[in-house]
Design a protein around this nucleic acid. Structure first.
Lengths: 113, 113
DNA sequence: ATCATGCTTAGCCATATATCTAACTATCCC
DNA sequence: GGGATAGTTAGATATATGGCTAAGCATGAT
């Protein structure tokens, strides 16, 4: 089981923290500067920066500095790999149910023969 | 930003590891015993057990022991909170686009007035 | 009863995470 | 220029994570 999909791992890891999810939710409303994101968290700035860089490295947000203000914005397409993975997972599961179905169907034909 | 949704954090954290995702994919095909899941990983059993318990604590799988064999099975509904979160996130984003739309529309009416 | 099989437990180790404080840098405003 | 504002950098620390080995404990087969 090699380390495929480093993206997915980065994204899921970024999403695994409630503070970071809250930040994403905030950013879904509108872009925001660093202190704006920090405020509701009660965390110190360096800590917030760390969270932001995790989000940025996962590709979930982009940031840009204008003067002394850094503005952060959501990258909504970045969630796509997650949906894709979930869908693939579901497809496999459903294919399995179908096979079961076939099996049951075959059994019943056998019976009523 | 309190620690709501411990579930989501547990689930995302469980999904953040490629080995664990591979195990889930395998289990989407069919239930499997521990050694069966361990084989393709090249990892030692205790390590595999650890991964399995992370998955189980996140509610993504269930396991049961029959004799000396423990069988693991996927709990596909367990992914639901993830989809819900993604959908909510998307809704917020789209509501935002709508507001932008309104804004632009208003501006244009203003112009052609 | 004995032995192999299939986990389990306990404990070690290295690295990664989340948080902080303290000190520094770069703007902006007067 | 000088002070306030907005980040940033550089550690320090505590805990968590992912991996291992070694030893233990049921259960199934002979």
């Amino acid at each position: 089981m090699a380390k495929h999909d480093p993206d997915l791992s980065l994204i899921f890891h970024a999403l695994a923290d409630p503070t970071r999810r809250a930040m994403l939710t905030r950013l879904a409303e509108a872009p925001a500067r660093v202190t704006e994101l920090a405020n509701p968290t009660g965390l110190r700035l360096p800590t917030v920066m760390r969270h932001l860089s995790v989000l940025e490295e996962a590709g979930l947000i982009v940031t840009a500095k204008d003067g002394r203000v850094r503005t952060c914005a959501l990258v909504p397409e970045a969630m796509a790999p997650v949906r894709t993975w979930l869908d693939t997972q579901r497809d496999i599961w459903e294919a399995r149910l179908d096979r079961l179905d076939d099996y049951v169907t075959r059994l019943m034909k056998e019976r009523t023969k």
